[in-house]
């Protein structure tokens, strides 16, 4: 995991005819963890999708070295499939051989036969996290990873993130909840929201 980095220069994001943020730059190296804060609708999810390369930035550019994994509210698990099979698909896509570890850590073993449709929000979050662990990517983008989780699972997620950055990974998490991780940097998205006319974009 050496040498992972992600860098964004002068990003701006526009959705429809509304400018969400502009002049946003960030630079993270191995071992960094960044907490993106902001009110609902300020553009946290859009920022994550731009960093992941799923959404084109209105201005600016993103460069990175290392694999990237994104966890958002849609982890791509088939609703009709039992959890074990739904996760199994992504394991074989990722070529993951050590899936049992993530299942054990996240306490998912009793749920493997339950169709994803019947899982609660927190259980789905844990399943999505298992998928992230199995992926083995350097850079984690976690969009609202803590919402819907009980306190035990929240602590577990924080520990997993700590472990990940300790091993030279990078983690960016967007959340409006407080997060307790050592060495946490913070980015408040409101600081980059346009205050003047939208013409002030770039």
């Amino acid at each position: 995991m050496q040498g992972a980095s992600i860098r964004a220069a002068n990003l701006a994001c526009r959705r429809g005819d509304r400018l969400l943020f502009r002049r946003l730059s960030l630079e993270l190296a191995a071992g960094d963890v960044l907490h993106v804060k902001g009110a609902n609708g300020i553009g946290k999810s859009s920022l994550m999708r731009i960093l992941a390369g799923l959404l084109p930035a209105y201005a600016g550019e993103v460069t990175r070295s290392g694999d990237l994994a994104l966890m958002d509210e849609r982890p791509g698990l088939d609703l009709d499939q039992p959890l074990g099979k739904a996760l199994g698909f992504w394991q074989s896509v990722d070529g993951c051989t050590n899936a049992a570890h993530a299942l054990e850590v996240l306490d998912l073993e009793p749920l493997l036969d339950v169709p994803v449709r019947y899982l609660s929000t927190g259980q789905r979050k844990r399943a999505a996290m298992a998928s992230i662990l199995n992926r083995g990517a350097n850079i984690w983008l976690l969009d609202e990873p803590l919402s819907g989780l009980d306190t035990a699972a929240q602590a577990k997620f924080a520990a997993l993130i700590q472990l990940h950055i300790g091993g030279g990974g990078i983690c960016i998490l967007a959340s409006h909840q407080p997060v307790e991780i050592a060495g946490l940097k913070t980015l408040v998205l409101e600081d980059f929201a346009p205050k003047d006319a939208p013409e002030d974009a770039t």
């Binding site: 390369g53 990237l68 958002d72 982890p75 791509g76 698990l77 609703l79 992504w90 896509v93 990722d94």
Partner: peptide, 17 residues
């Protein structure tokens, strides 16, 4: 449509497919 809603295409794209 269902895969689009579930985010399957996004996740595959992130894996370079």
């Amino acid at each position: 449509a269902s895969d689009m809603e579930l985010g399957v295409f996004d996740q595959l794209k992130l894996r370079g497919v």
